[in-house]
């Protein structure tokens, strides 16, 4: 097995740490370097694991890497992905893929032109409950899908996530895309109409929304809604959730993807805690990316998949401006 040389561009998004450790434990992988304008963010990793640090991502790319993992601020995904593609590296990019349709088109095009693969990081596809739900639905267990009510509630992330010039949006963008991708994947249908509501309801005085409700209608006739709110905060016993109430013509299927938890009540903490013990989605997603580029097969979650999910969220913002349901932008 040849060793794959992987670089990581930016740890702005905290998921980078999970991806790093997944890569580090994987055989046949060399983490050739980490580029991050903020050295302090990654110094503990580069020191502990003896990994080269680059302030400038171009210098990292100049190493001639096989692939890069991008976890920069949403607004910088396109710049980083396009540069990586031009260096000949395959790309795994954190969600949302981009913050404008044009950016995402350019990313997809650059990767295609350079014959490198672009994968969108939607780790929720690697939750065992989600895969089992898809398997059951594919074998017709609940008939044709009529509706999906999803939630992807989370904790207030702060930092650049609430600076619109870097994040491109608030909770509606941040938390539409995961479950939207699952809805696309599970239904095999395309979202074609979107209605959304978003507001600043939990943390005072934000420049972005921290609460959102997004309705979607699919070309199959199925309907859906996603609660995208950052409504979880201490002392709620966990960070958030991924749930789907899936209604079919012959039955109903509920996915509570993080239900594999034990409840911890410790006198050393002032709140109860839910500890998830299920399979680690990040490891399985990274493995799937590595397997695809090693074997030359298509990555399991394409740039197009990432674009489609992000377009729903971006359409949601347009719907809020318009005050009505609108067709998917650039469908």
């Amino acid at each position: 097995m040849t060793t794959l040389r992987i670089g990581m561009i930016s740890f702005a998004h905290g998921h980078a740490f999970a991806y790093f450790h997944a890569l580090r434990r994987m055989p046949g992988i060399e983490i050739s370097g980490i580029a991050d304008p903020e050295r302090g963010r990654v110094q503990s990793l580069t020191d502990e694991f003896g990994i080269r640090y680059f302030a400038d991502y171009e210098q990292l790319l100049a190493l001639g890497l096989d692939a890069v993992v991008i976890c920069s601020e949403n607004a910088l995904h396109a710049e980083h992905a396009i540069a990586a593609a031009r260096s000949g590296a395959h790309v795994l990019c954190e969600k949302p893929l981009g913050i404008t349709p044009e950016q995402m088109d350019a990313m997809i095009l650059a990767c295609r032109d350079q014959s490198v693969q672009l994968m969108t990081a939607f780790p929720c596809r690697y939750l065992p409950a989600v895969r089992e739900a898809k398997r059951l639905i594919d074998q017709g267990e609940i008939g044709d899908i009529v509706a999906i009510k999803g939630t992807n509630r989370g904790t207030f992330p702060g930092g650049w996530f609430v600076r619109p010039e870097l994040s491109g949006g608030g909770a509606l963008l941040d938390h539409t895309v995961h479950v939207m991708d699952l809805m696309h994947w599970i239904t095999g249908a395309k979202a074609d109409t979107v209605y959304a509501y978003a507001a600043n309801l939990f943390q005072p005085g934000l420049d972005v929304d921290d609460a959102g409700m997004l309705h979607v209608r699919f070309d199959s006739g199925a309907i859906g809604v996603i609660d995208t709110s950052w409504s979880r905060q201490a002392p709620f016993p966990t960070w958030g959730d991924v749930t789907m109430e899936i209604t079919g013509t012959r039955g109903s299927l509920f996915v509570d993807a993080l239900a594999q938890k034990n409840e911890v009540y410790s006198r050393s903490a002032d709140q109860g805690r839910w500890d998830y013990w299920g399979d680690d989605m990040d490891t399985h997603m990274i493995q799937a990316f590595i397997d695809a580029i090693r074997s030359g097969k298509p990555v399991p979650i394409s740039g197009e998949d990432g674009r489609r999910a992000a377009l729903v969220a971006l359409t949601g913002y347009r719907s809020i401006e318009a005050g009505r349901a609108i067709p998917l932008i650039e469908a």
Partner: peptide, 14 residues
């Protein structure tokens, strides 16, 4: 949003 099928009526309202 409402879907109506044989002996199934499902609604999502915001």
């Amino acid at each position: 949003m409402v879907r109506n099928e044989e002996l199934l009526e499902y609604a999502l309202v915001t």
